[in-house]
Amino acid sequence: MTLKIINHGLSTSIQDLGRPGYFHLGIPISGAMDRFSLRAANLLVGNPEGAACLEVVFLGPKIEFTRDAIVAVTGADLPVKVDGEPRDGWASFQVKAGQVLSFDFLKSGARAYIAVSGGIDTKPALGSRSTYPIGALGGVNGRNVETGDELPVGTASNGKAGQQVAPALRRLPDNPARLRVLPGLYWHRLTEAAGHAFFDDEWKVAPEADRMGYRFRGGRALEFVDREPPFGAGADPSNIVDGCYSYGSIQVPGGSEPIVLHRDAVSGGGYFTLGAIISADMDFIGQLQPHMPVKFVKVDMAGALAARGERRTALQRLREALA
């Protein structure tokens, strides 16, 4: 069976849990920005948790089904319709052959995940169907989904309609969003005052926010400790000898606008990084719209690991609820 893309929306891509293991060659992990929501969507329709879904940004696509299927939409609050009739988000429902899945305008969040029983069955690249357009890997011939595409769907196993994820089991950011940061990497490049300002100020998501990185603005410019530029680093105080970047690491070119590297991160470069968003909070970033207020919250490693544990527990509860 196939999904006929009548309209691709704004930016719709095929994503799963990504292709780890090639970052040392500049190929990022990719995969769902909000992995928890992708897992939930798959579990709702009876797929393996890491099956390929459609990641939809801001504006929903319009899709015609060529065969009956079980479908679920999770993540952002993007109202779902089947042949114009509303369906619940975070719940599984049936779509019959010939019916059309469409969406109303986004109410909150940024990315919705559409899972179809059987999973999107495009050709994997380096072990994943996730789309990495810069390197032309995965997706539909290395690119995002476009109007006119017909996406293959795998054989469904045991999906059923009427499953749902209760609001208490969902994991979405607060407003203002709190993003926890473990200071480190080149933190020592900042003055003490700048270090405080970074956490004290309220930031807003900038319009330049995508799968590669989320940019923030609105806080005070950061000041650097004076230094003689090291050979090969470059003259700007925010420059370093090009090194690796961590997923979630926060670079601040010129000291003005922090950028958090996300799933399609560049693997390295010449800007200092002041630390990284903890792994437990990376999914939240995928649900932030431009102009949303954000506070960066300082944590230590114990705090980061505790948050990681809480996320694991949340995932376990989700699995049990949908088992």
Partner: peptide, 9 residues
């Protein structure tokens, strides 16, 4: 240093 809770730098 650590880069978040998943990287040693």
């Amino acid at each position: 240093s650590y880069g978040g809770d998943e990287h040693v730098f």
